[in-house]
Every structure is written in C-alpha cells, then in structure tokens.
C-alpha cells in the first residue's frame, strides 16, 4: 500500500494518476503533431478523458458539459475552421518553443504551490462547507424541491445569471457560425475552388 491510502481511496488515487497520465501523453502528442486533423481528433479524446476524470472526481455536471462541449461541439467547430486553412501546421523552430515551455512550467509550479493552502478534500471546516453552502443544502428541499442542489442553484437561485450566460453563449455561437460559414456558403466555396483547380 502507498502511504496514507488504502482500499477504495487507493483505487481512486490510482485512477486519478492514470487518467492524468493519459492526459499528459495526449497533451505532449498534440504539441508535437503537425497534422491538424490528428490534432482535432486528439483534442476530442483529450476532453473525453478529462470528462471521465471529472466523473471520477464526482463533478458529474462539469463532466457532462465537458463531454458535450469539448468532445462534441468544439470538435465540429475546429473541423470547420480547419477546412478554411491549411491541413498541416508549420514546423516551429526549437528555439521559439523554449519560452512557452518555461511559462507553462512556471504556471504549473505556481498552481501546485497554491494547492498547499487548500483545505483537505471533504474537510467539514472548509469555506465551501461552512458559509452559504450549508444554507443552500438546508433550504433547497423546501424552497425548490429539486434533488440536485447544483441544478437548483444554477436554474433557480441564479436563474437570471444563467439566462444571461445562455445569451452570451448564443451570441458567441452565432458569431462563430457566421465567421466559419457552415452550410450552403462554405459548400459552394469548396465547389468553386475545385472547379478553379480544374
């Protein structure tokens, strides 16, 4: 047994390590690949696996958003964007990739440093479990009568906030679709391009 873990905890820790390892491998592969189609496919796999990780962490609603948006919609949007550009990325000289690597490593180190101050997982005295959270947990069954508290907060207590977010997402989707030109326009453009080549 690894120090401090036993039984189900050990299993969950192993699953977390495994899924994060897979994410790491895919991330490195995405950074090194040049074929844009492969990158789009791998980013779909990336969000699918991170959605699984969210399920394993018991954040089911986040996981579902990640699966629907990351693996579903954004794959399609990236494919649409890819049709308008080249199919392969230009190779990057090694000297220019040093600074991004340093920035990523520094950010990661800062995040790891920040986790030291976080309360332990499931700590009853943590801020999330002491102030407003308990209030929502007590009131929701009488006031809203929805079994899932997160749903009650999102759709009822913060209903206007969610409505505004929906408007923002709708506008963003509209702008992206206008830019990429799904449908008739992109289709005829592709045909015309093929005719010109002949």
């Amino acid at each position: 047994m690894i120090a401090g873990y036993s039984g189900a905890d050990l299993a969950i820790a192993l699953i977390n390590v495994l899924l994060l390892g897979l994410l790491f491998v895919i991330g490195v592969a995405i950074a090194r690949m040049r074929s844009l189609f492969a990158i789009v496919m791998l980013s779909g796999i990336y969000s699918l696996i991170s959605a699984t990780w969210f399920v394993a962490l018991d954040a089911v609603d986040v996981a579902f958003t990640e699966a629907a948006v990351g693996a579903g919609i954004s794959t399609a949007l990236l494919l649409g964007a890819m049709l308008l550009t080249a199919r392969t990325a230009k190779p990057e000289p090694f000297a220019r990739s040093i600074v991004p690597i340093l920035v990523v490593i520094a950010t990661g180190a800062m995040l790891v440093y920040a986790t030291i101050d976080l309360p332990a997982f499931g700590d009853p005295d943590s801020p999330a479990n002491t102030y407003v959270g308990t209030d929502y947990l007590e009131r929701t069954p009488q006031e809203i009568a929805v079994p899932n508290i997160v749903t009650a907060v999102l759709a009822s207590y913060r209903g206007f906030d969610t409505l505004g977010e929906t408007g923002v997402v709708f506008t963003a989707a509209l702008a992206v679709i206008l830019l990429l030109g799904f449908g008739e326009r992109s289709l005829s453009a592709t045909f015309n391009r093929k005719k010109d080549k002949k």
Partner: peptide
C-alpha cells in the same frame, strides 16, 4: 449519455468529410 454523444459526434465528423458541410 456519453455513448449517445460519441455516436452523434462520429456521425458529424464523417458527414463533414463526405459533404464538407453540416448542412
């Protein structure tokens, strides 16, 4: 639900490469 999303997105990718368009 994941199985459903998976199925739909595969169909979307293949349809996109057949017709170069979702529509």
């Amino acid at each position: 639900l994941y199985a459903l999303i998976n199925f739909v997105s595969t169909i979307a990718i293949l349809k996109f490469f057949r017709y170069r368009s979702f529509q």
